[in-house]
Amino acid sequence: MSVRGVDHIGLTVPDVDAASAFLVDAFGAEVLYDTLPADRPPKGGEATTSRLGVPGDAREVRIRMLALPDGPGIELFAFDHVEQDTPAVPSDLGWQHLALYVDDLDATLDRVVAAGATALSAPRPLPGPEAGDRNRFVYVRTPWGSTVELLTYPDPQPYEEHTSRRRWHP
């Protein structure tokens, strides 16, 4: 058995259509299909609770799969009949952000902000073992509050001197 890569990321959003529009505009994602279209009844009850580990009153009302241009899919979920917390921030336990490798950080940041995200700072140099003259990153918040990191590391990184294993990127 071997893990071959990330197939998709599941993301719960308040509005599947608005989140889809953001992902298309910001990252060039493409809508592939709806597993649970808006014209179908919600899914809930014991089957949903046992499959996803959600509260008993939670109902899935929309599920949509998108694909990034050179990466994994993003599966969007929307629920109703359940109290939801605010989106996780990096200090919370659990998966804290999605990191996307980009070739042109400045152009991508401009596109993402124009699509509705908020940059948390200006792009910064990658630190320590990831450093390099053109190696940089920046965090943004999506319109619904999730955290995304944009990063690029076209230059060799110091960690590469100590191991033959390399980080994966497209």
Rank of each mutant, 00 (worst) to 15 (best):
A38E: 12
L98S: 03
G128R: 15
G28M: 08
V138T: 08
Q96E: 13
E160I: 06
L11R: 04
I63T: 13
P87E: 05
D57F: 07
D92L: 01
P143G: 08
V148F: 05
A21G: 08
R51W: 08
D70R: 13
A29Q: 05
E130V: 03
Y153L: 07
D133Y: 04
W95F: 14
Y33D: 15
V54M: 03
L120Y: 06
E83L: 09
L105E: 07
K43C: 07
G28C: 12
A38V: 06
G28F: 09
R51L: 15
Q96Y: 07
P37C: 09
A107P: 04
P154D: 12
L120G: 08
G73V: 00
V112E: 03
F27I: 06
D57K: 08
G56T: 12
L98M: 13
I9D: 02
L105C: 05
P154N: 13
D57W: 02
V61N: 01
L23F: 15
G45S: 12
G73N: 04
D110Q: 15
P129L: 11
H97F: 14
L98Q: 05
A29V: 09
T86L: 14
L11T: 04
V113P: 05
D133P: 10
E75H: 00
R136D: 02
V82K: 11
L100P: 00
R111C: 06
A26R: 00
R134G: 09
G44T: 06
G116A: 10
A114I: 10
H97L: 11
L76M: 07
G56Q: 11
F22E: 10
W95H: 11
D103W: 04
A78V: 04
